[in-house]
Amino acid sequence: MRTTYDAEADAAYITLVPEIEPGRPVRNAEVESAGGSVVLDFDAAGVLLGVEVLGATRMLDAAILEGAERIDR
C-alpha cells in the first residue's frame, strides 16, 4: 500500500494494489462528506485499486498524511 499527498490540492491517494497501469481504472464511485469527498477507483473485474481523498486534512488522521509521500514539492 502506498499513500501520496498533494498539499496544494489537499488531496491524498491510497494505492491498494502493487501498481495501477494506465487504463486499468474503469469505474469510480464518489462519496461526499461535509469535510470533502472520497473517490473509489475500480478495475473491470471490480477490484478496488485505490482511494482518492479530497479535503485530506479534514478527512484523514494526521499520522497518515505525515507518513505519505509528498508529490507537491
Rank of each mutant, 00 (worst) to 15 (best):
A12C: 11
I20W: 05
V17F: 03
A12W: 05
R70H: 06
S33A: 08
V26W: 02
R58C: 03
A68Q: 05
E52Q: 13
R73E: 14
A7W: 01
P22Q: 07
L65C: 05
A68S: 15
G67M: 11
G50D: 14
V53S: 11
Y13E: 11
E30N: 01
R58S: 15
A63S: 14
V26A: 11
A29E: 14
V17K: 05
V51D: 03
T4E: 15
G55F: 08
T15A: 12
G36A: 00
E66M: 02
R73V: 04
A56G: 12
L49Y: 10
I71M: 10
N28A: 05
E52W: 00
E19K: 11
E69L: 06
V53Y: 09
G23K: 05
L65R: 11
E52H: 01
A12F: 00
R73A: 09
A34V: 13
E66H: 05
Y5T: 04
A34F: 07
R58H: 15
L65S: 04
P18I: 06
P22C: 08
A63D: 15
A29K: 05
V17I: 04
D61H: 15
V17Q: 07
V53P: 11
E32C: 00
L48D: 04
A44V: 01
D43S: 07
P18G: 10
E52R: 03
A63H: 14
V38M: 04
D61N: 13
A63C: 03
I20N: 05
V47R: 11
E52N: 05
A56W: 09
V51W: 12
A29P: 00
E69V: 11
T57M: 00
G35Y: 00
I20Q: 02
A62T: 12
I20P: 00
E19C: 03
N28R: 02
G50M: 10
R73F: 03
N28F: 08
A12M: 11
T4F: 06
E52F: 05
A68M: 06
P25A: 10
T57P: 08
N28T: 07
F42N: 04
M59S: 14
Y5F: 14
E30A: 03
E66N: 08
A44H: 09
A44T: 07
D43N: 09
A56P: 00
I64Y: 05
P22R: 03
R24A: 05
I14T: 11
G46R: 04
V17P: 09
R70V: 03
A68C: 09
M1L: 10
D72G: 10
D10Y: 07
A68L: 01
R70F: 02
I64W: 08
E8A: 14
V38Y: 10
D72P: 00
A63R: 14
E30F: 00
L16M: 02
T4C: 11
V17L: 06
A62H: 09
A29G: 03
L40N: 03
R2F: 06
A11K: 06
V31R: 07
P18D: 15
V26T: 15
G36Y: 01
T3C: 13
